[in-house]
């Protein structure tokens, strides 16, 4: 199937480190409105794949296209600009700046992109409200629970209206119920915000929410199943 201009598309990715092949001719296409979960054992290359998709790591070979733009051909500064305008990222521990309020944490990427302050804060408040954490807007980030922190992190990922969301073990540090809540929230984003979602996870219950589940093995992606139970052929 030919690559579509929107979403995230990786073709023939190769990545080797210290003589160890991490990615080997890996190909992935995720359209906007679609979600993909990437699973696999520790050290199989899931996070490396995510870093390549985000343009944080340059593959040895292959291309990554985000919303029609080949990020592998860009200089590091331009790749950062693409991330700022196109990609939202969610990390395992939320990775908020502890000195800033949740509202400031959410607003920060948009302000870095040059968005108007009043508009940005209004949108940040609205996102926090939508994600059920409006009550923590003025509190101290250090006092947030794990679930609250991840919701704030998701709001931060959404503030720039990204076309692609990349999440690296977003529920890895959360307990069962909180994990379910955050996972539900994330996998609802492609439908509600029209973005492509790639989630790296160990958790089969979280992965099962995705439209497609792929496993990294021998440096390549192998389909596990689609949400309807059929084997993924893409």
């Amino acid at each position: 199937m030919p690559p579509t201009p929107s979403g995230v598309h990786a073709r023939d990715l190769h990545y080797t480190i210290a003589g160890r092949v991490i990615l080997n001719s890996l190909t992935l296409h995720v359209d906007r409105g679609e979600s993909v979960a990437v699973t696999g054992p520790s050290g199989c290359g899931k996070s490396t794949l995510l870093s390549c998709l985000a343009g944080l790591t340059s593959p040895d070979r292959g291309t990554v296209t985000i919303d029609g733009q080949d990020v592998t051909a860009l200089a590091p500064g331009r790749r950062a600009a693409v991330r700022l305008s196109t990609i939202g990222m969610v990390y395992q521990f939320g990775e908020l700046l502890p000195e800033l309020s949740p509202l400031e944490n959410v607003a920060l990427p948009a302000l870095m992109a040059g968005a108007p302050a009043s508009e940005t804060y209004a949108r940040a408040e609205s996102l926090l409200d939508d994600l059920g954490v409006a009550s923590v807007i003025g509190t101290d980030c250090g006092s947030l629970s794990g679930g609250e922190r991840q919701r704030v992190a998701v709001a931060r990922a959404l503030i720039g209206k990204p076309r692609v969301i990349l999440a690296d073990e977003p529920t890895g540090a959360l307990d069962g119920e909180t994990s379910d809540n955050v996972a539900d929230l994330l996998f609802a984003l492609p439908a509600s915000h029209g973005c492509a979602l790639v989630v790296v996870t160990h958790n089969p219950a979280v992965a099962a929410r995705a439209d497609r589940v792929l496993a990294v093995r021998d440096g390549r992606l192998h389909p596990v199943h689609e949400s309807n139970g059929a084997v993924n052929q893409r």
């Binding site: 990222m89 700046l97 990427p109 992109a113």
Partner: peptide, 11 residues
């Protein structure tokens, strides 16, 4: 702690 933000700005 700026790590995640460095995904957006590296200058």
């Amino acid at each position: 702690a700026l790590g995640p933000l460095s995904a957006f700005r590296t200058d």
